[in-house]
Amino acid sequence: MNDFKDLDGLLHSQLRLAVMSILISVKEAEFTYLREKTRSTPGNLSVQIQKLKEAEYIEVKKSFRANYPQTLCRITPRGSRAFENYVKAIRQYLDPAKPQKG
């Protein structure tokens, strides 16, 4: 029987998981795009992005476009693996009788 603690604590948080779910589907996304899709506040999103960056789950690139600052986020291979493991763990947790593939 899997325990709840098997779930990656860094990902098992609503906003961080939402950011990772978006970034797993795209090549890279701007901060404003993530904010709009997750319907979060800029301050909260910045904090969560920083945590994901420190864990090396995402890369953050700051630049300028048309004289405006731009923050681009991209998932790392480590982040992809963590996300996949999280999905497997969550499925196992929700349906322990069913063997998980992969």
Binding site: H12, L15, A18, S40
Partner: peptide
């Protein structure tokens, strides 16, 4: 979306919701 502890069911729902929201946007 506030950062709060939530259940495994909620986690799965967030993943499905975000992926579908992104997919619709990228058609």
């Amino acid at each position: 979306m506030e950062d709060q502890q939530f259940s495994a069911e909620d986690g799965l729902k967030v993943i499905q919701d975000m992926i579908s929201r992104t997919r619709e946007d990228l058609s």
